[in-house]
């Protein structure tokens, strides 16, 4: 009996910790995406009229910014509903 209770408690704690882990990673990943988006905008913003570094710096970094370009493109697609995006992240309904 005690063994069964211990087993249930262990599995419940494991699931709870797993859920908390996923939640904390979601926030971290959201923050990471925003930082990567800002990096892409800073480096390549001249192509859309933003102040940016001297062009040779942007061109030298461009080949390595595949991930950042993807993030920036995806975020720009969702820009018309950032409030919904944040609400989804924090599970506000």
């Amino acid at each position: 009996m005690l063994n069964r209770l211990w087993d249930v408690a262990r599995r419940f704690t494991g699931s709870l910790l797993g859920m908390l882990k996923m939640r904390s990673v979601e926030y971290l990943e959201a923050e990471l995406r925003e930082l990567e988006n800002v990096f892409a905008l800073l480096v390549l913003g001249s192509f859309i009229g933003l102040p940016s570094p001297p062009l040779p710096i942007s061109l030298r970094l461009l080949p390595h910014l595949g991930r950042e370009l993807l993030v920036a493109t995806r975020i720009s697609e969702r820009l018309d509903d950032m409030l919904g995006e944040m609400a989804g992240l924090f599970e506000i309904s």
């Binding site: 990471l32 930082l35 990567e36 800073l42």
Partner: peptide, 20 residues
């Protein structure tokens, strides 16, 4: 400035790696 920002990005990636 870009190096500062890049280090912040790498720190967040390390945090994600530690959790996952």
């Amino acid at each position: 400035k870009l190096m500062e920002l890049r280090l912040a990005i790498l720190a967040r990636r390390r945090a994600v790696e530690r959790v996952l």
